[in-house]
Every structure is written in C-alpha cells, then in structure tokens.
Amino acid sequence: MNRWHTDYLSHPLYHPARRFVPPFADWPDQAGYDALRDRARAAGAPLPAGLRFVCELEPGAYYETHIGATGEVPTRARNWHDWFNALAWLAWPRAKAALNRRHVRAIARGEAKRGPLRDAATLFDECGVIVAVADPRLGQLLDDMRWRELFIKSRDDWGRHIAAHTLGHALMETGLAPHLGWCGKALIMEVEAGFFELPSEEQTDRLDAELAARLDDDGFLASPRALCPLPLLGIPGWWPDNEDPAFYDNTDYFRPTRRAKSATVTA
C-alpha cells in the first residue's frame, strides 16, 4: 500500500507526530525531506545539529554508526517505514538521538551483533509507547496486565491520569491497517499530577527530554524485559469496538500474564 495519504493522522497513535506533517500532495523527495526538517526546526523542535534524512543512502558502516558520525538518516523513497522514522525523529528528537548514541556505545564495546542493550533499544525504537501515569496505581495495572481494571474500571482516567504517547515508527507503520493482535511495547513513566493539564506539545517535549536523559545511562532499559506489552486496541478512544466491555474477553489478545517484568521510571 504505497499510495500517499495522510488519512491515518486522525488516530491518537499519531498525535505526537501529527503537527510535523505538511500538506504534501505526494511522497516527499529529497527536497521534501529537507523542507520537512527545516519546517520542524523553525517550529522550535530541538533537532540534532546536522540531522538530515538522505534518500536512498547506503551507509558504508553500521546504520546507527553512520547516523552518529554524520547525522544522515538513510531514508528510502516511497517507504512508509522510513517516513514514520523521520516523523519520530521530529517528534522525539532527544530520545531518538539518545537511542542512537546507545547503539554507538554498544557497537564500540563489541556488541555489533546485538545483545540485550541494543535489542531493547531497537525494540523500543520500533514499537515503543511511552505511557505517562500520574497515579502509580494505573502503571501497576498495566505492569500486572490487569486489563479489565485498566481499560474498563479506570476508563475515565485515560487522558486525565494516564496516556499513551507513541515513539515507535514500526508501530506507526502497522497503524495504517490496525488488526486484532496489534501490540506496542510500553515504558511506564510516572509524571506529576499537573502533567495532563499541560498543552500536548509540552507534554511530548517533557517526556522526550526526560527519556533522553534516562537513555544516556546504560543501566536503564538494559534489556527488552524492561518493556511491557500494551494491546493498543484496548486503549479507550483508539478502537470503536472497545466501547463494548465484552471486547476485553478475548484472552488471546488481552493475555493475563507475561514472562518479563517491566520497569517504571519517574519523569
């Protein structure tokens, strides 16, 4: 499905990146990607110096090493995955740069074939969702996979005391055609009570800055087990069928247990 469109932008999944999408009539070329970056920078996005989305670039070294050394992000033309990667850089510039630095550090230590640290960074980069919670009880419900309590009994808390903010660009790509089984990898971040009264752009900016600082410590998010599953179609407002409580009876999707334990961080 390579037809250019922006129909997906109405879904809450794309809220952090929505403001950066200009009214392109067709897929951006190199000039379009340059304009996309310049537009974001002019709007105040704290993009890394030298960042550029370079069409059809084949890096001579590791993908992450090339970005770290040059600021050039290899970007395939007419490719949804790479389009959403560019949007993720614009929406989460500090965190994306910190994820890249983490890869570069791991590669320098000999983790070229990936180990737990790089696996966690890649999983979060591709499928990550930051779940901001002002009430630790809600974060615990997510961590414990108590779906009916989280999505039904605590339904009114969504948007007021808990919210999901998408970072993963592969998640944005699969969001073009949501399906039962669609799942993100959640990182729970505790925030102060007034966080949800802030403008949405300020919420994203604060999460971005805090997450970047955390990611520069390799003891944080040290393995994929630090992330917990989040069935995205269960989030109130993200899928019309979840208005019916019976939707959550599907235990193949809303699984009651998991093997890994997650980490909760405070922003």
Rank of each mutant, 00 (worst) to 15 (best):
R94D: 10
W4E: 09
N242A: 12
E111G: 05
H81Q: 13
A164P: 09
H15Q: 15
G68P: 04
P23I: 00
N85F: 04
G219Q: 06
I188E: 00
T204P: 00
V133H: 02
G115Y: 06
S10G: 11
M189R: 03
P93E: 01
D244W: 05
V21T: 12
L57A: 10
P12F: 07
A61M: 11
T266F: 09
A40W: 00
G181F: 11
A43Y: 08
T75Q: 09
D38S: 13
T266I: 10
P12S: 08
T65A: 14
A35N: 10
H161A: 15
T6S: 05
A121N: 03
P229D: 07
P116L: 07
V54T: 11
E210H: 14
H5C: 06
N250Q: 13
T204W: 08
Y14Q: 11
N79R: 05
D143M: 13
R37F: 03
I162Y: 03
M189D: 00
G184V: 07
E173I: 06
P136G: 09
A45G: 09
S154V: 06
E58L: 10
F20E: 03
M1Y: 14
V131Y: 03
A263C: 14
A61S: 15
P178E: 08
L221W: 03
W182M: 15
Y63V: 08
I235R: 00
A49N: 08
H11Y: 07
H103G: 01
F84H: 01
E58A: 12
W158V: 10
D38Q: 14
P236W: 05
N250V: 02
T251N: 10
R41V: 05
A213D: 08
P245T: 06
L215E: 03
N100T: 14
L227F: 10
L227N: 05
V129H: 00
L167Q: 00
V129G: 02
M1F: 12
P245V: 04
L180Q: 13
N2P: 06
L187C: 10
T166S: 14
M189L: 15
T6L: 02
K261H: 12
A226F: 07
A112M: 13
F220L: 11
R118H: 07
L36E: 01
D217E: 14
L176D: 04
P74R: 08
S154F: 02
C228R: 01
P240R: 10
T65I: 05
G128E: 01
L141M: 12
W4I: 06
A164V: 06
L57M: 05
F20Q: 01
R94Q: 15
A267P: 07
T70K: 04
P116E: 13
G60D: 14
D241V: 11
D34W: 03
L233P: 01
D38G: 13
E210D: 14
W238T: 04
D205Y: 07
R137E: 13
D216W: 06
L232K: 00
D135S: 08
A108F: 11
D125Q: 10
A263Q: 11
R255W: 07
E111T: 01
A170D: 08
K185L: 05
H169C: 06
E192Q: 13
D26M: 04
R206G: 10
G128W: 00
T204I: 14
E190T: 11
T264D: 04
A132K: 01
A193I: 06
R160P: 04
D216N: 13
S10K: 13
P245R: 12
D244I: 08
F20N: 02
R39N: 10
G237D: 12
D217S: 10
I235E: 00
P12K: 03
R19E: 08
